[in-house]
Design a protein around this nucleic acid. Structure first.
Lengths: 211, 211
DNA sequence: ATGTTATCTAAACGCTGTCCAGATAGGACC
DNA sequence: GGTCCTATCTGGACAGCGTTTAGATAACAT
């Protein structure tokens, strides 16, 4: 009576869960979010429409797996930006720019990531443990002195995260085009917006004025 | 040969366009965005599934009409907050809080509003002319001195708008619950996050340091 | 070799957005 | 008032969707 472990062993197909997630990401990249149906994913993976149900409870759970990979990729992108920042002064801004650029470069994936979060009214736990959100908090903490309370740190992280997300969702909006051009490119535009949030500069001094 | 003007005259039904938009909003409020199908709207309005096509090109155009009313309602909410702000000092923060509260109180409508915007990669023109976005810019402008350039003003408005939107999309996230409690309520939490964005305080002095 | 069980297919259900042919009814013109 | 036009609405259809069910198949344990 060997217990039926939910193992990822290759059976008929080989590794269908993997293949399905890959197929989904391929469709997302080439045809966008509206083309991402369960049937289309199955078609792309070369199986029947019902096959995915042996690996995922429903469509949402497949999208969750896709989103999980998205968050992991975001982790990596932020870590890279953090490591490459020339100096501590603009480390947080660089992370912010990297965040928005990730969303700009993977718009469909980014949408799936936040669709999942909104449906559950929760960011994935992944982020808190050692992920992107944690990186932002650590970066802010490193720039703060010891007068900054835990609550302030958390509030600042939330503020930074929300600002990044807001900008990420709107970066492609055509209303911003003239401004981007006036500032000499998207990167300059992003840095300028982040700097106008003030908070990023504020923490340079290691001082947080809550009033 | 009287030209067939696209007039909103009551024909068989009376004013089906109106009735459809109202039906859609009713469904949004009571059953959420996932229940909002064209057929459900037609059902709610008491007409056949094909009837809406004489008033809207497709489902997206009906949603656009719904979104338009949403943006108008947001205009009013921000105007109210702006008028009621006790002093100039926290006028911008009050507007920000009102923005997020609007999204929290009308989550389904807010979602339709931004779904439409994202699909067109553009905020509605409505906002620029005399709407909510314009109100934010005017409020910031009123707090700035004359050393602030037009570009700075635009950047600050974008920053504020994005921060508000980011917070609006995440305000319901369960990760923030403990912090809300620690600060004694949602309103206090919102004000605290906005204040940690720094920018709001920054403009109090009427000085904008771009470097 | 046998039996068990995970895996996959084929077919079906009810739902969706959208289109078409035909019925109907309001307004314009004589 | 009668006639025509055209906007409006219905019923029926189509393809596609997410999901379920029953049955075939193939890998594994014994």
């Amino acid at each position: 009576m060997n217990k039926p472990v939910p193992d990822p062993r290759p059976y008929h197909h080989g590794d269908l869960s993997r293949a399905l997630v890959d197929a989904a990401r391929r469709i997302l990249e080439t045809q966008g979010p509206t083309a991402l149906s369960l049937r289309a994913v199955a078609r792309e993976a070369g199986v029947s429409p019902a096959a995915p149900y042996h690996h995922f409870k429903d469509k949402d759970q497949l999208l969750e797996a896709v989103a999980h990979e998205g968050w992991t990729a975001l982790d990596a992108a932020l870590a890279k930006a953090r490591a490459e920042a020339k100096n501590a002064r603009d480390r947080l801004t660089s992370i912010g720019v990297a965040y928005v650029c990730f969303a700009r470069d993977n718009p469909a994936l980014y949408r799936v990531m936040y669709d999942g979060a909104r449906n559950k009214d929760s960011l994935p736990e992944q982020l808190k443990d050692d992920g992107a959100y944690c990186q932002v908090r650590n970066t802010i903490a490193a720039q703060s002195d010891d007068t900054v309370t835990d609550i302030d740190l958390e509030l600042a992280t939330i503020a930074a995260w929300c600002a990044g997300h807001g900008l990420a969702e709107m970066i492609g909006f055509k209303q911003f085009e003239p401004l981007k051009q006036a500032l000499g490119g998207e990167q300059a535009f992003l840095r300028a917006v982040f700097e106008h949030l003030g908070m990023f500069a504020k923490y340079d001094h290691g001082v947080l004025q809550t009033d």
